[in-house]
């Protein structure tokens, strides 16, 4: 095993400290009993209590959750189809335009996406509300799903699909029983990515939401625009906690799945 050089160790330590310290500070100060966020006055969980009594935040959280569930699911279906078509579909008319429009939302500034979608909804007379946010989020989340799924599709052995077809599977059967189980981890991470992106989005949701459908990021943004607030610290800590638990569970379970598959493959070979 190679020794870790001092330079590498230092850059890793400083790099990760930079990435994590702000979040640690945020979580620690969410337990501060003082109304002045930055002045420590003792441990307290009262801001969490306040948060759960705040109807407006709870309503917004419920809207956000439903939007995220719907849009990430739709984005996963569409994004997986798009990735499959691009990687396996061969040549077809407009392929370059298709891949361009599929990957462009990855880097397109949110303000442009939000504005253009809003103007579309206005000109076809669709009332702004949950439906419009779901449509908007599906559109940009499907790009992320397509990236994740296509990288998995590229890397796996095509012969497996061909074998299934040779053995009499219909293309749909082959997809269901061979391709889908193999790309499943990528499809799930695509869904999770779409889900968190939707939970997190402020700009596109601000453009496409109506007065009856405020999402959590819109609420957070209007609360923190003027300054820091202890309730938002508590809310942020909860969200950081959920993401941490989610990412840990997912990476541990996918690691287990890989180990299990490797063991089975070893057994099959001996």
């Amino acid at each position: 095993m190679r020794r870790v050089s001092w330079f590498n160790l230092t850059s890793l330590t400083f790099g990760f400290a930079f990435l994590y310290l702000p979040m640690v500070v945020l979580v620690v100060y969410s337990f501060n009993s003082n109304k002045l966020v930055t002045v420590w006055a003792g441990f307290s969980t009262k801001w969490y209590g306040e948060l759960f009594r705040n109807e407006a935040f709870l309503d917004a959280a419920w809207v956000t959750l439903r939007v995220a569930l719907l849009s990430s699911t739709m984005a996963t279906v569409l994004g997986t189809m798009a990735a499959y078509v691009l990687v396996r579909g061969g040549k077809f008319f407009g392929r370059t335009l298709f891949s361009g429009t599929l990957y462009a939302p990855l880097v397109m500034p949110d303000v442009i996406l939000g504005l253009s979608l809003l103007l579309l909804f206005i000109s076809i007379g669709l009332d702004r509300g949950m439906v419009t946010i779901v449509l908007a989020h599906t559109t940009f989340a499907m790009s992320y799903v397509a990236v994740v799924v296509s990288s998995r599709l590229v890397s796996f052995d095509r012969a497996l699909e061909e074998a299934a077809l040779d053995l009499g599977c219909t293309p749909l059967d082959a997809f269901r029983s061979v391709t889908l189980p193999i790309i499943a981890p990528a499809v799930i991470s695509g869904w999770l990515l779409g889900f968190t992106l939707s939970l997190d989005d402020l700009v596109i949701a601000s453009f496409t939401s109506g007065p009856s459908s405020t999402t959590l990021p819109i609420k957070i943004f209007s609360a923190v625009r003027l300054g820091v607030s202890p309730e938002i610290n508590a809310l942020s800590s909860i969200l950081i906690g959920i993401v941490t638990v989610g990412v840990l569970t997912f990476s541990i379970s996918s690691k287990r799945a890989i180990m299990k598959r490797m063991r089975e493959e070893n057994r099959a070979e001996t």
Binding site: L19, Y20, P22, M23, V25, L26, Y29, V37, T38, L192, L193, T196, L199, D200, L202, P217, I220, F221, V224, G227, V228, I232, N233, S236, L239, I240, V243, T244, G246, V247
Partner: peptide, 17 residues
């Protein structure tokens, strides 16, 4: 992990710092 954590919250964290 930070990549998955809310963008808005990570920007907000710097306000207090």
């Amino acid at each position: 992990l930070p990549f998955w954590t809310s963008f808005l919250i990570r920007v907000y964290a710097w306000k207090a710092i």
